[in-house]
């Protein structure tokens, strides 16, 4: 399962970076969406990842975590990260839309007026 998820994370990152490097603002936005999904999934994998992280909750009698327990901390982290990226990506969408209206093009090469002397 870890291997499959790792491959999915890699694919999401590859796709995201490819899209971010495109000139179209819409593709750029979609690339950011894919990248953030990749990042969330990567945190999910880190629960019992490269070096086993210790879960914060343990059984009172034995002092060890129950064998089928998931790490609750990563779930909290992912939830937080999803909420944040939801808000930010909505902002990017609105901004991209407004920019498209103001510039009249969704080509990043047309958006150089603030760089020109």
């Amino acid at each position: 399962m870890n291997l499959i998820l790792s491959l999915v994370v890699g694919t999401l990152f590859a796709g995201g970076i490819y899209l971010v490097l495109r000139r179209s603002v819409v593709k750029l936005m979609l690339g950011l969406v894919l990248l953030s999904h990749g990042a969330h999934l990567l945190i999910f994998l880190m629960g019992d990842g490269l070096i086993k992280a210790r879960t914060p909750f343990v059984r009172a009698e034995t002092g060890v975590a129950p064998p089928d327990s998931a790490d609750p901390l990563i779930q909290a982290l992912i939830l937080t990260a999803i909420v944040i990226s939801l808000g930010l990506l909505t902002f990017v969408m609105a901004l991209a839309y407004r920019t498209d209206q103001a510039v009249g093009s969704d080509d990043l090469n047309a958006m150089t007026s603030t760089d020109q002397l």
């Binding site: 990042a39 945190i43 070096i51």
Partner: peptide
Amino acid sequence: LCFLVGAGLVYGVAG
């Protein structure tokens, strides 16, 4: 996003 990935990885490494 790089920061987030780093934070995730560091949690995986150090717990």
